[in-house]
């Protein structure tokens, strides 16, 4: 396969970026998308040019490092997979493929296609935990949890925090990420107790980090490599209304700019 790549190149977060066109002439349909980029980078290195910087780690769809907006869709044209799980057979010979980084205020571009997603970590720090001291690992089934609750908690816990939801959202909102992290805890007895305080704290940081506001479009769920459902967002909304009715105040400090 021969492909034409239009790749976003940007030296650092301050520099002005631009699209550059590259030819990938020796692409096998069995390559993963990231392997294809490796080959292109090898060529660039041999020519003495700067290789394309992109995020990757496990290359099996569980770490959440790979990102990439491919032809205008987060993680490319296939549903419910990450970029590293995308194979070149999903593209046709001679196609032009546009590759861009996630674009949102809380995800500064570090270089080319690499973005800084530590704003997600700060949302987690605001409430992605339970504050009870748990001691050693408890015996399995010592706290009975209903099967449907366990299932829904696990579905939400599948979130790998890749940021595709923010990238796809026309509002740049991180509601799906935040909602998944909340639902993962609030379905379980250990996490249920603090659910209202937790939602308030995490949304406060979500807003302070500069994420946009959800308008229930569903673009996030459509590109989510783990297929997290919009139900989690409804659950977040319900818990926030409860927090307001209970008169709770946020107990987190708002992160300082920079």
């Amino acid at each position: 396969m021969k492909l034409t790549l239009k790749v976003w190149r940007q030296k650092n977060s301050k520099a002005v970026g631009e699209f550059k066109t590259y030819q990938a002439d020796h692409v096998s349909p069995d390559m993963s998308f990231l392997e294809m980029l490796d080959i292109v980078n090898q060529d660039l290195i041999m020519k003495g040019q700067e290789p394309i910087a992109f995020d990757h780690d496990c290359r099996e769809g569980i770490c959440g490092m790979c990102s990439l907006m491919i032809n205008g869709v987060g993680h490319g044209p296939k549903t419910a997979i990450t970029t590293c799980q995308l194979h070149m057979r999903s593209f046709s010979d001679g196609e032009t493929v546009t590759i861009e980084p996630w674009r949102a205020l809380p995800f500064p571009i570090i270089k080319d296609l690499v973005t800084d997603r530590s704003s997600f970590d700060r949302i987690i720090q605001a409430g992605g935990f339970i504050s009870a001291s748990t001691g050693a690992a408890p015996d399995g089934n010592s706290i009975p949890i209903a099967k449907p609750d366990a299932e829904q908690s696990m579905d939400a816990a599948a979130c790998i925090g890749c940021g595709a939801c923010v990238a796809a959202c026309p509002n740049g909102s991180a509601m799906l990420f935040t909602a998944a992290k909340l639902a993962h805890l609030s379905f379980l007895p250990q996490g249920k107790i603090e659910r209202h305080q937790r939602v308030l704290n995490m949304i406060t940081v979500h807003d302070a980090e500069g994420f946009g506001n959800c308008t229930n479009m569903g673009e996030c769920s459509a590109v989510c490599p783990k297929g997290i459902s919009l139900d989690t967002i409804a659950r977040l909304n319900r818990d926030l209304v409860m927090a307001a009715l209970k008169g709770l105040e946020p107990t987190v400090g708002i992160p300082v700019e920079g």
Partner: peptide
């Protein structure tokens, strides 16, 4: 606020 979010890095 949403427009501010998406205008950055655009």
């Amino acid at each position: 606020k949403s427009q501010k979010t998406t205008a950055a890095n655009a």
